[in-house]
Simulated assay, not measured.
Amino acid sequence: MAGSSLAALEPRPRLVDWSILACVLVEAVTGIVSLGAGAAAQWPLFWVHRVVGLTLFVLLFFKLRRVKPRLRRGRWDRATPLSVLTAVVALAALATGVAWVLGVDVDVGFWTLLNVHIGLGLLLVPLVVLHLRARYRPVRRVDFEGRRTALQYGALLVGGALVARSQELVNRVAGTEGERRRFTGSKPVDGEGFPVTSWVADDPDPVDLDAWRLRVDGLVESPLTLSDETLDTRDERRALLDCTSGWYTVEDWRGVSLGTVLDEAGIDGDARWVTVHSVTGYRWSFPLAEARGFLLATHVGGERLSHGHGFPLRLVAPQRRGFQWVKWVTRIELRRRRDASQYLATLVSGVT
């Protein structure tokens, strides 16, 4: 009975294979994009990621059930080790993602379970492509035509959505850590203080406050050079910091409004983007209208920023993820276009 039910739900073999590739690509795209998504309105992106991930789990079940006979001794070929590795990485990526959503909080070395999930997901993309190349069989029209195929995929997606919803209900009923997580998957940080995390290799020497200056230049009418003493740090703001390491915290910040600093420099009519630079070379660009609402913070929780938290100045960017809250700010640049080199800077900042 169970076997016949599975057979009714299982799409044709070639369609399963190509569907796995499609799901992996969707997971990679939504996963990468979600790293920069922190606004509440962006929750559908995370929901799609979860539903497609659960659908991928079912497709992998069908795939592994079909190829199980090939794994017997004597039936391996040159591509089998790659296939096995791909399956292991795929299942590990799915398992760590589900575990994180359910509230499992286990660190693996220096990485959280969420970091491991992200790493495995990125590794899975090239592995699936290589596997498909080794086992390439083009999809045919007969593989996806017919009402039955549409019903099968509808059932898979609806089933994935129901399981995702069930995960939330389980967390709520059981009172697990997962219940308190944001839609991004980040868990709350309790107690005083919050973790010190930085982008990859960004670990500069402590900044000499006497020598430090904040430059405001680019498309401005009057470039500025400000010292710590000339910053009017009376603006206060409570903001939620959501780190892609998998935690979030709500803190009271004090400093100077970025909009105030920009107005003091005078904004050129051609300016559309604001790039915030760190002493490490790391930087990130924001639309001008949004950036005006940011804060250049000198204090958090009533205390001066520590070096690890970006002393003497860090960006507070509500609705943005933690890696966009630039630390050790040294320059504000107004531009006509987004600074495309910021993506290269994420790879080399702190190293060069």
Rank of each mutant, 00 (worst) to 15 (best):
P81Q: 06
T80D: 12
V84P: 06
D107N: 00
V101L: 09
L71T: 12
V106L: 10
L59T: 12
F57S: 14
R75A: 15
F62V: 07
R70I: 09
T96Y: 04
D107M: 00
A79N: 12
G53M: 04
K68D: 13
R50L: 10
R72W: 02
V104E: 01
L94Y: 04
D105S: 06
G109K: 00
W111H: 11
L94V: 03
V106N: 04
V88M: 10
R65I: 10
R50M: 11
L59S: 02
T96H: 09
G74F: 09
V52G: 04
T96M: 02
R73L: 15
V101G: 04
A90K: 08
T96D: 06
L64I: 13
V116N: 03
P69W: 06
L56E: 05
A79Y: 04
G97F: 05
L59Y: 05
A93W: 01
D105V: 00
L56T: 08
L85Q: 09
L91R: 04
I118D: 14
F110R: 14
V101H: 07
V52F: 10
L64E: 10
L94Q: 07
T86V: 02
V88Q: 07
A99Y: 01
L71G: 13
F57D: 04
V88D: 06
G103D: 01
L64W: 09
G103W: 00
L114Q: 10
L91M: 13
D105A: 02
N115R: 12
P69Q: 11
F110V: 10
A87I: 02
R50T: 10
W76N: 12
R65G: 15
A99K: 05
L102E: 02
V108F: 03
F62T: 09
R72V: 10
A87F: 06
L71N: 07
A95G: 10
V52L: 08
I118H: 15
L113H: 00
R66N: 13
L60H: 02
S83F: 00
N115I: 05
K68R: 15
R73S: 14
L71Y: 13
L71S: 12
G109M: 00
D77G: 10
L91Y: 10
A79R: 13
V101P: 03
V84T: 05
R65D: 15
L56K: 07
I118F: 14
L114I: 06
D77E: 10
L60E: 07
W111L: 13
V88A: 13
K68A: 15
R75D: 01
N115M: 11
L113S: 01
H117F: 08
R73V: 13
S83E: 00
W100A: 09
V116E: 08
R78M: 11
H117D: 14
V88T: 09
L71I: 11
L91G: 08
K68W: 15
T112K: 07
V108E: 00
I118Q: 15
R50C: 01
A90I: 03
